[in-house]
Structures are given as C-alpha cells and as structure tokens.
C-alpha cells in the first residue's frame, strides 16, 4: 500500500507555480514590503547606499505617503494616492475573483465611510458627492463582473450567496447611517439624500442577486450542503454573539429607543438561527443554510452600524441624530 500511495501522491510533487506566477507573486511581495517598511528607516540614510537609492527612495517615499493616505478624505492632498495607489494595488495583488469581490466590498465601505465623515463635518459638497457616487458605481460594476467570474468558474452558489449577502449587509448599514444625517437641516441635505438614493439602488440590485442564490441553495441536497449548513450555523451564532457584545459595549452611541430597536433586530437574527436549527433537524440543509446566512446578514448589519457610530462619534436615534461633533451651520 505504501508503494501505491507513493505512486499516486508522487505525481503531486510536480504541481507547482509556473515560473511567471512565482515571479509575479514575488514582485507583489516586494511592492508590499516596500509599502510596509521597517519602522525606524529614515530617508536620509538612503543616500549612503547609492545602489538602492533610486528604487528604495521611491518605494519608501511612496510607502510613507501610502500609509498617510489611508486616512485621507476627498479633497485632501493624499486622497489620489489612497484611490490610485493603495486601493488599485490591493485589487491588483489579488488573484482569485473571490478576493477581488471581497475587496470591492471593502472599497464601497471606504467610500461610504468617507461620505459619512464629511457629512459629520458639513463637508459633503455637490462635487465631492458626485465623485463618491461615480466611484461607487464603477466599483459596483467591477463587483458584478467578479461575481460573474466566480459563478462561471466555480459553480459554487454558497460562495456567491455569502459575497452578495456580505455586500448587502455593508450597504444597508451605511444606508442607515446616511439616513441619520438626512433628517438634519444643512446645506448638504440634498447631497446626502442623493447618495442614499444611489446606495438604495445598489442594495436592491445585490438583494436581487442574493435571492437568486438563496432559491438555488434552499433546494440543494447532498453532503456538501449539509457540511456547509453546519459550518454556517456555528458562524452565524458567533456573528450574532459578537454583534450583541459590540452593541452592549457601545450603548452610549445609541439613544434608548434606537438601542432597543438594534437589540430587537439581533433578537430576530437569533430567531432565524432557531428556525435554521429546526429545518436542519428535518434534513433541509439548503434551507437551513439560507436562514443562517440571513441571521448573519442581520448581525453584520448591526455590527457595522454600531462600529460606524462609534468611529464617527454619532449617537444613533430612532428618528434623527444628535451629533457629538459640531456641524457647520449655514
């Protein structure tokens, strides 16, 4: 038997990266390393090592600017580096469509967070809103292309459902945050409403894609879906527990009514998990998977809302918003 195994597995040794793949990943890693240098390195000493000066100076200058650019908002000097260097490099460095689609979700989150931070400071002008909307649209189109590639290459409906579900949770959470700003009287009220409209269109589109996948999965059978449902059950429970803990730790960022509403939503997520447990015990693993996924989406939504409120130092109300930061008045 040992010989037979060696014969079978021996071929595996020939499986490796193509030379061009190996070189490409190496170049990605060099780029990553140059953007994440050793902390104490100083530009001045580069001049003592002329061999490295040209490439290293550029890389480290870009690296330092790149790190600073992460907190830049539209209109700031380093914002183009954030968009054209940091984000495009990260998308470029991913191989699989899953990773690229995941990064599209992150980009959408970044754009919406920028809009919220500007709205909190009264800085969401028409021009900036237009720029953010345009980038959101482009990013969404790339997301759809990447999801299509996943569908075509893997035929794994569960992955597509998870990705669509994650995106929906992100968009809905930010739609909610932006809605909090829209009730205030300010010169940027129209810009905020326009942005909410744009986000709403994307939410509908992603929800539609998600429902298609749910319908396919709900009726699926087999060992795969059973294992996936059991894994999803555990993940959903952890996600809800984490959201509950986060909500409890950040109670100060919610008015009482809003706090209880958020708690109710998490209660609904728990109910979905119980429903999933029930149908799973009946052997309906596809349906159980979709229920656990729905619970996760609710919990993710609550978690994102809470963490955004904390980051923006907002106080979420049932029908409005009381800012701890001062808004610029008209």
């Amino acid at each position: 038997m040992q010989e037979k195994l060696k014969q079978i597995f021996g071929k595996g040794k020939n499986f490796k990266l193509l030379p061009e793949e190996k070189q490409l990943i190496k170049s990605h890693l060099v780029l990553f390393a140059r953007n994440n240098p050793l902390g104490k390195t100083n530009f001045l000493n580069l001049f003592f090592k002329p061999v490295f000066a040209a490439s290293l100076i550029t890389a480290l200058l870009v690296g330092s600017a790149s790190a600073l650019a992460e907190t830049a908002l539209p209109g700031m000097l380093l914002y183009p580096i954030k968009i054209r260097v940091n984000e495009q490099v990260k998308e470029f460095l991913s191989f699989s469509s899953d990773a690229k689609a995941g990064w599209n979700i992150k980009i959408a989150e970044r754009r919406l967070t920028e809009a919220e931070k500007l709205a909190a400071k009264g800085g969401l002008s028409f021009e900036i809103k237009t720029e953010i909307s345009s980038r959101l649209t482009e990013n969404f189109e790339r997301f759809e292309i990447n999801v299509k590639k996943i569908e075509e290459s893997k035929k794994n409906d569960k992955i597509v459902l998870e990705i669509n579900s994650d995106f929906e949770a992100v968009l809905e959470a930010h739609e909610n945050i932006l809605s909090q700003f829209s009730v205030l009287e300010s010169k940027q009220k129209q810009e905020i409403k326009d942005l909410i409209g744009d986000v709403g269109v994307s939410v509908k589109r992603v929800a539609e894609m998600r429902r298609v996948q749910e319908t396919l999965i709900a009726s699926s059978t087999g060992l795969d879906i059973e294992m996936a449902a059991r894994d999803k059950q555990k993940t959903a429970r952890s996600e809800v527990e984490e959201a509950v803990r986060l909500l409890s730790d950040n109670q100060a960022h919610f008015e009482i009514e809003a706090y209880f509403k958020a708690g109710e939503r998490l209660g609904e997520a728990n109910k979905k998990i119980s429903e999933g447990d029930r149908v799973m015990s009946e052997g309906k693993f596809g349906e159980a998977f979709t229920k656990f996924q729905e619970a996760m989406r609710t919990a993710q939504n609550a978690r994102l809302l809470t963490s955004s409120a904390a980051e923006l130092e907002l106080k979420i109300e049932g029908n409005g918003l009381e800012l701890e930061l001062e808004l610029e008045k008209e």
Binding site: L17, E21, I25, L29, L93, F95, S96, S97, D98, A99
Partner: peptide
Amino acid sequence: DRDRAKDILQDTFS
C-alpha cells in the same frame, strides 16, 4: 483551488 491558493500563498508571505 489554484487562484485562491496563490492568494493564500501571498497572504502567508506578507
């Protein structure tokens, strides 16, 4: 999954 394996390899080294 070859493509995901490349992503994970990259993540391992980064």
